[in-house]
Write a protein that binds this DNA or RNA. Structure first.
Length: 291
DNA sequence: GCCGGAATAT
DNA sequence: GATATTCCGG
């Protein structure tokens, strides 16, 4: 136990120092235990044992996987479907939310319905109900945005991310009123250009390989023109029933079923990045891997 | 019966 | 407050 007072502590002392800022990177497999459980046990952070902890730098290309509970603490026979088990609450991490927003943006308002969004998001284990619930909240968020000055919108002075991703624990003098630190995705920061389907990222898709559906959208930020009108009238382009079934019905603890959908179509996303004198833009293919 | 959306519950 | 579940109309 040599402690050199400063920076030569063992991992135990500095394990959280090494944690990259949430804004930097965030593994898509965040909850090792269910939020409920964590809450019930009043666990806020779970010190990962010194072992193979989720690699932050090893983000796979895209097939997003929802963290699945290995199994409820209770007994779970290896052959019991346990169709009465409840799946843990979904935690909408910024990454997931971004996928959601991207999906919604790419679908027209006409197609931006739970099922379609869910399919586009292509997240393993994500249910239609999950999306529906989130969508409901998202719409409320948008509605509140409507009545705000354009400044206030992009002005996400504090781009709060809800979920337990960027937990601040400051209680003091931050009195907010109105909708400031609510949803705040990069909704107001992201510009989506329509691009021709140039790329074809195909990953393993055990379930389906749908063709490409390319939707073109222009989402400008800063303007009051949210994705409102452009939302209101989109040529539909249904891809028909994709057989993408991600696992589990009721309570089915879906394993690491890597359900990936071949999201064809290359929609390029352009976002402004600050930090340098000349703001630069970054292109991202739709099925953002770097989210 | 499936789905979407709002209301309501946890 | 966030997410889930229920309810109801289409």
């Amino acid at each position: 136990m040599k402690d050199e007072d400063g920076n030569n502590n063992n991992w135990f002392s500095r394990w959280e120092d090494d944690l990259p800022p949430p804004e930097e990177l965030m593994p898509l497999s965040q909850s090792l235990i269910t939020p409920d459980l964590a809450q019930a046990f009043q666990i806020h952070k779970l010190p990962d044992p010194p072992g193979p902890l989720p690699e932050l730098s090893e983000l796979p290309e895209h097939p997003v996987q929802l963290p699945e509970p290995s199994s409820p603490p209770e007994l779970l026979s290896s052959d019991e479907p346990a169709r009465t088990l409840k799946r843990p609450r979904l935690v909408w991490t910024p990454q997931l939310h971004k996928r959601f927003v991207d999906a919604v943006a790419h679908l027209g308002i006409k197609n931006a319905v739970p099922k379609t969004i869910m399919q586009l998001m292509n997240v393993d284990g994500l249910t239609r109900e999950n999306v529906a619930s989130h969508l409901q909240k998202y719409r409320l968020y948008l509605k509140r945005m409507q009545g705000l000055s354009p400044e206030a919108q992009g002005q996400g002075t504090h781009d709060h991310l809800f979920s337990q991703a960027g937990h601040h624990h400051h209680h003091g003098l931050v009195h907010h009123r109105g909708a400031e630190d609510v949803f705040s995705g990069q909704v107001g920061l992201t510009t989506i250009h329509n691009a021709h389907h140039q790329f074809h990222h195909h990953h393993q898709s055990p379930y389906q390989s749908q063709g490409h559906h390319h939707q073109q959208h222009h989402i400008a930020s800063g303007g009051v023109g949210f994705f409102d009108h452009r939302f209101l009238g989109r040529p539909q382009h249904h891809q028909g029933m994709v057989g993408g079934r991600v696992g589990v019905g009721p309570g089915g603890v879906l394993g690491p079923a890597t359900a990936a959908a071949g999201i064809g179509g290359g929609v390029v996303q352009v976002e402004d990045v600050e930090g340098s004198s000349p703001p630069r833009k970054v292109l991202t293919l739709f099925p953002t891997a770097d989210d």
